[in-house]
């Protein structure tokens, strides 16, 4: 039987770009359903999503990226999807890579596949030097704690299978979830694979960590990673 596949696009004030992102997904990720999770945007994000006829889960309060993603996972699980890809709504993640990111998951080679901008020799946008330094530090911490090198642990372009869909619909970190999820998945003995992708510079909206001091972000996520070494995903 053909697997049921869903792309979840978390969106907060992405009015400028969301319709284009959905259109690109429809054109270049054929066979994938698209769910936009509107995280209580204050601009016209919902209207933009509805105008292009996409399914929109409209949260009544702002939950942050982790809460929005978990809402999407719950919806995906309730609708019996087999594989889910997370893709930003600001145009950073080209839709043509959706199949590539999900391929190892669909092939049963891993539970979590991460689209890494640092594995692609072809270049593309690789974030600011300070952020790259932070990502590198977190990558080193993951290697020290879990013995596995993850080059782009903050990447929000990732795919998960049914097992993780089940787990994440019960528990998903609410704050800066991407690196912590890497830790939790590895601590649970599950498989993580990275796939080379090319990313673009964001074309609209705001980064969920833009207002945070980068050093504080690395410290907070570092502590979360150390704690994730002590626990596993709740069944």
């Amino acid at each position: 039987m053909f697997p049921r596949r869903l792309v979840i696009v978390p969106a907060f004030n992405e009015e400028a770009r969301i319709a284009e992102t959905v259109a690109e997904l429809r054109a270049e990720a054929a066979g994938w359903d698209v769910l936009v999770v509107n995280d209580c945007s204050t601009d016209g994000t919902v209207a933009a999503v509805r105008s292009c006829g996409a399914t929109c889960l409209d949260l009544p309060v702002n939950l942050g990226i982790g809460g929005a993603m978990q809402a999407g996972f719950r919806w995906a699980r309730a609708h019996d999807y087999d594989v889910v890809v997370q893709c930003d709504g600001d145009g950073q993640h080209p839709a043509r890579y959706v199949d590539a990111v999900s391929r190892p998951v669909l092939a049963g080679e891993c539970d979590l596949a991460i689209g890494s901008r640092f594995l692609n020799e072809g270049g593309g946008y690789r974030s600011t030097p300070m952020r790259r330094l932070g990502i590198r530090l977190l990558g080193l911490l993951i290697r020290a704690l879990f013995g596995r090198h993850v080059t782009d642990c903050t990447s929000g372009f990732r795919a998960i299978n049914r097992r993780l869909l089940h787990d994440f619909s019960h528990y998903y970190p609410l704050d800066y979830p991407e690196p912590e999820v890497c830790g939790l998945v590895l601590a649970s003995g599950l498989r993580v694979v990275e796939v080379p992708v090319t990313m673009r510079q964001r074309m609209g909206g705001r980064s969920s960590i833009s207002e945070l001091d980068g050093a504080l972000y690395v410290v907070k996520v570092g502590v979360a990673l150390v704690l994730s070494r002590l626990r596993t995903l709740p069944e």
């Binding site: 929109c56 889960l57 949260l59 939950l63 809402a71 919806w75 609410l174």
Partner: peptide
């Protein structure tokens, strides 16, 4: 309370949809 809030927000969004 934060976890409860996230669950309630999801349920409300699902029902709206």
């Amino acid at each position: 309370s934060r976890r409860d809030r996230a669950r309630l927000a999801y349920e409300l969004a699902r029902l709206r949809l």
